[in-house]
Design a binder for these strands. Structure first.
Length: 304
DNA sequence: AGAAGGACCTGCACGC
DNA sequence: TGCGTGCAGGTCCTTC
């Protein structure tokens, strides 16, 4: 289940492997349309683009693209004295000029892994995994593959300004802004943490773990928490996410190369998945309830 | 508008 | 062994 740390690790791994590469062609499975942007539009728009960088925004992997037009312009502007001929060849507009084919130039490819999505960078002769929904063929000969058994993942083109995601980044939001997110809200703090429009990147596991570390009962109404407790929650959340990113970064560096999951990082869970087991702090039994439709784990003594 | 709940989707663990 | 059932959860959509 990729949450922020996993997505960050994967984005970094993909970045190292395909930055600067060029998309030659794109293939999409016909097995139902699993994408936000139509597969036909993706297939038409992606080839010819160069990968400038890959990074994370919330739980999204963002592939910054440089269109063929951009690359030509760059090359021309770098070339010294321009003669009249090269100027004459210059295209006046950014968009593709092929008549009748209006393909917008994408600036970014947005990937959401959903629950089971994987991005793999492989050699072309590596057998295709089941549930492979997209393959980008790169100029280097390698392939970027999108595999997603449960098909909760999404691909989309972003042609507008830089993708910023739906909510605030938990790693950079200021404590006052963090506190403001929950003001007046009656829903449980756990449900609020999962709401990507408020804070993006936090999923079920890290919500439970950060609430435990902050000593806050997941059912507590978000708007009723004191500023001090919210400050503590933000600190716990950041500590958990940072620790996970560090561990993920070291233990899963091959993730995108290999056949996937092997050794995916797990933080030392203190409550998640530990129903009935003793709390690592006080020894009380960890309880599991369903909150916001999600299994929720907490220590009834440590979390108030 | 905010909140709650179901749908989507497949693999896996479990019980009979 | 094999089948049915329930569970996992990120996000979208509908309903209240």
């Amino acid at each position: 289940m990729p949450e922020l740390p996993e997505v960050e690790t994967i984005a970094n791994g993909v970045d190292r492997r395909i930055r600067g590469d060029r998309i030659v062609s794109a293939w999409f499975s016909k097995h139902k349309e699993p994408f936000k942007t139509a597969a036909s539009a993706l297939a038409a728009a992606l080839p010819g683009n160069r990968v400038r960088a890959v990074h994370r925004v919330g739980k999204h992997i963002v592939v910054d693209l440089e269109s063929a037009g951009d690359q030509n312009r760059k090359a021309r502007s770098e070339a010294r004295p321009r003669d009249a001929k090269s100027l004459a060849l210059e295209s006046p507009r950014r968009e593709a000029r092929t008549p009748g084919r209006l393909v917008p130039e994408p600036s970014q490819l947005i990937v959401h892994l959903g629950m089971t999505g994987r991005l793999l960078v492989t050699a072309p002769d590596v057998p295709q995994a089941p549930h492979t929904h997209a393959v980008l063929h790169l100029a280097s000969g390698r392939e970027l593959r999108f595999v997603d058994p449960r098909r909760f993942g999404r691909l989309a083109l972003n042609t507008a300004e830089a993708f910023a995601g739906p909510g605030h980044e938990p790693l950079t939001i200021s404590p006052p802004d963090f506190a403001r997110l929950f003001r007046g809200r009656k829903l449980a703090i756990k449900a609020a943490l999962l709401n990507q429009k408020l804070l993006h990147g936090v999923g079920n596991i890290y919500a439970d773990e950060s609430l435990f570390r902050a000593g806050i009962r997941p059912t507590r109404p978000a708007g009723r928490l004191t500023r001090a407790r919210l400050d503590r929650l933000l600190k716990s959340l950041r500590a958990v996410l940072r620790a996970a990113i560090r561990a993920g970064g070291s233990s899963v560096s091959d993730y995108v190369d290999a056949d996937g999951e092997a050794g995916f990082f797990q933080i030392q869970h203190r409550v998640y998945g530990r129903e009935g087991q003793p709390c690592r702090v006080c020894g009380n039994q960890i309880r599991r309830i369903v909150l916001a439709g999600r299994s929720t784990h907490f220590c009834p003594r440590c979390q108030t």
